[in-house]
Design a protein around this nucleic acid. Sequence first.
DNA 1: AGCGAACCCTATCACTTGATAAAATTATAA
DNA 2: TTATAATTTTATCAAGTGATAGGGTTCGCT
Lengths: 206, 206
Amino acid sequence: MKGILFMLLNANDTHKKIVKAAHKLFMDLGYRAVSTRRIAEACGITQPTLYHHFSNKKAIYMEVLRTELVDMKNALSRIIKRFDGDIEECLFQVTYYILINKPPSMGQMFHDIQKELDQEHQGTVRKWWMESYQEPLASIFEKGIKDHKLRDPAEIGSDPVSSAYLLLSLISSRNTDYKLKESLAKEQARLYVKVILYGLSQSNGQ
Amino acid sequence: MKGILFMLLNANDTHKKIVKAAHKLFMDLGYRAVSTRRIAEACGITQPTLYHHFSNKKAIYMEVLRTELVDMKNALSRIIKRFDGDIEECLFQVTYYILINKPPSMGQMFHDIQKELDQEHQGTVRKWWMESYQEPLASIFEKGIKDHKLRDPAEIGSDPVSSAYLLLSLISSRNTDYKLKESLAKEQARLYVKVILYGLSQSNGQ
DNA sequence: AGCGAACCCTATCACTTGATAAAATTATAA
DNA sequence: TTATAATTTTATCAAGTGATAGGGTTCGCT
């Protein structure tokens, strides 16, 4: 009755269950604060079982990061394609999506990547990160500059990539968890985009 | 020859040495990743000696936070008093100072405060934080609004406090350590202030 | 000199950590 | 059914954790 397909599904099931549980725990509490036993408990399995599906704790964390970043990459490229024309609306949609779907504390994530992973794994994650966050966001600002809707980079010293980082700084700051308050996230996103584009000053000085 | 003053100095010496070593370690690696043995080693003392000067690990961390935040508070109020007239210059000086003197990863610090401290200690730290960062920065924006150099808060939805958070988001983002590259910090500070005040847009839209 | 407090040490505790070995269980295929 | 492979279990390890007990040592004071 149960063919090879079902077996694979079973294996995949626990595999996915581990990644999902580990995802939440790692992003909530940080790499160091999450024990393998706690991950196992959250999956309803015993701790050594983890080591049948993953070689070690870091491998679990890497898989968590990979899925997180791949999902974000796909979602952002979809949004950007859809709101291609209007830069302000496009920035808003992207900002809003990230606010809703990002890990609650990206600062924690960055720290874990930098302090808990060796150089090689860091390089891999950096590649994933650039594909999922930096490049999509930078592409928006690049188009804005090309269409002369944004200042010349030389004028203010902010190329598309550093503009992307500026917006990401606003988005990823504070350990905010907007997942349950969509309207609040909308307000925040609007504010961030307004400030990034027009600033707080009364007149367009300088 | 050695009076009571010298004795106190001796005690104060190791006390200060502990706080200083713990400061660097906690801010670099995070609360969880720093063991009491490593702090002791960095001080050239044994681990149980720590417990003669502090009741437990958290007490050390609290003292580290307190000194960090008190120092920042004093420095910022001094700068703000000095550059009171020119809001852009004042923001720049404050931004530059924080970039140079802040902990390398403030996201890490926030996380530790939120996840490793109980409610009561969190409240204490929050008070210190508001006095050292939020209130000084917000006072600058408040003056700017009063002098009609900044937009009306109602217009963009950014009161002095949230304006302060916006700038702090830019400043504290990324695990940057500018301590050795002052010129780079100057560039960053200029950029942050320009963007916060005037934005990236070509014309002052909206 | 000698008392008492402050200080720092050695030795040790109970506990948690990531990881492994090997047995037990389950599912697949012949 | 039976052999084989995949999966999960129990039992256990060495290392590291925060913290404590108790014994020296040093210092100021009388």
